[in-house]
Simulated scan of single mutants.
Amino acid sequence: MKRKRKPSEKMNKEKGARKVPYSRRTATRITSIVFFTVILFSLVFNVIFFSKYQTIRNSVKAQENSIEEELNQVHDSNLIHSHSIVVFTDQFLQQYFGIPESEDERKKRLETLSTYFVSGYDLQRLGNLDDFKGSRVLKDLQYMDTEQISRNQANVHFIAKYEIVENPGESKEGDNKENDPKKVANRVEIVVPVTTDGKGYAVYQNPRLVESDLRTTMNAEPNELEGELPTSSEYKKLQSFLTEFFTSYGTSDEKLPFMAEVERGLNDQILQSVTIRQVAKDHRASYRAIVDVQYQNNQTSLNSLYTYKLQLSFENNKFFIESME
């Protein structure tokens, strides 16, 4: 016969049983959500990180390229303004203007010129010399200016003096034409387009002749000397002293060191006149003067006028020239 369980025993058993707040399925779901969320955030973080990294890398690379380009520009610019570009152009023009008479020497000239031009330059563009029976000789070169036109290009200006000697053709019997060579001297301003690769120079176009007018029309305001005007007595003493000084200065006589701080004077210049254009003195008994001095060459009757700016001191009732220019 089955024993009937008492209600108190059933309640005690239910109280002793462990209660699980979540099921295994719920725990697995939460774990999966957390796992995939971490992975997702990790991927997003990596994408953002690598995107930022690539942006910074590209920025740094761009800055490096910019700095390198600027350094190259500075280097090229230094080469453009270097005196070496003048030396290069001078050497080029020596070869360019020198045209020999013989055919073999002319071929050698073209070979030499090819080393000055950029690679592949067509030297036929220099002109056809087949009809020219003579020679051209460079007499003098004078550098004028270097005009920078880009980062690595410049126009180099020179003054060239040359002489052309052209031989006449064979005269026919009874022809009265003179057989003497024809000589023509000329003076031109020539511009040579030069480029650089940072290592050296090359001519990239044919030279061209120009005519620059270096003169200008302008007004120059006179520079007035600051200070007090000397008295009439001081002016006469100064005039007398300057006449004596420039007389000695024109011939470099033995009295010159006692009147001025100069190493040496002139030779064979006879004083004609001294004109004081401006004079002023300050509180330290110091004088400044601008004077026109006219000299005549002792060997000829040629007169020349010169202007001097003087700084004088006055001590013990005597003038002394401290500096002159």
Rank of each mutant, 00 (worst) to 15 (best):
S248D: 13
Y143D: 03
N303K: 13
Q153H: 10
I149N: 01
E221S: 11
E163V: 15
V20D: 02
F320W: 06
T89P: 05
E64S: 07
R284T: 15
R3Y: 11
T89D: 06
S102K: 13
Y162Q: 02
Q269M: 14
K309C: 04
I290R: 01
L126H: 04
N267V: 09
T115I: 01
G16K: 07
I30D: 03
N72Q: 11
P21S: 11
E228C: 04
D140V: 04
I270W: 02
L129T: 14
R57C: 06
V118E: 07
E189K: 05
Q294G: 00
S42E: 09
R5C: 03
N176L: 15
Q205R: 15
N152H: 07
K237I: 05
V192A: 05
T216F: 08
G198Q: 11
K2Y: 13
V86W: 04
K61L: 06
F41V: 13
K4D: 08
L141A: 07
I190K: 00
S51L: 03
E14K: 13
V20I: 07
Q124H: 08
H75G: 00
L126P: 00
V191N: 05
T307V: 11
L43V: 12
K19M: 03
R136M: 14
Q63V: 03
V60K: 10
N12A: 15
L312E: 02
G250E: 02
D175Y: 06
A27I: 15
S212H: 11
S252N: 15
D90Q: 08
S51K: 11
Y22P: 00
N219K: 11
A185K: 13
A154E: 03
V291R: 00
K15C: 04
Y201L: 02
T196S: 13
F88G: 10
D140G: 06
Y204P: 01
K161F: 09
A289R: 01
E211R: 14
S286Q: 14
E9K: 08
M1R: 04
H81C: 06
V74I: 15
K10F: 08
T195C: 03
K10Q: 13
A285L: 14
N186V: 08
K10P: 00
Q294I: 13
Y249A: 10
R208C: 09
Y121W: 13
Q296E: 14
Q311F: 06
R5W: 07
S313A: 12
Y121S: 08
E234M: 09
V194C: 01
K61I: 04
T307E: 05
S82K: 01
A202V: 01
V262P: 02
S273A: 14
F246Q: 02
D197V: 08
P193C: 12
Y306H: 15
L256K: 02
N128V: 12
N267D: 15
H75F: 03
P222H: 04
R18H: 12
F158P: 00
T89H: 07
K183A: 11
Y201Q: 05
T31Q: 05
Y235K: 05
V87C: 00
R136G: 03
A27R: 14
E64K: 12
F45A: 15
Q296N: 06
R3N: 08
A27V: 14
V86N: 12
K133W: 10
F132N: 07
K161W: 11
Y22Q: 11
N316F: 13
N46H: 12
S286A: 14
A154V: 09
D145K: 10
N72C: 02
Q299P: 00
E226V: 15
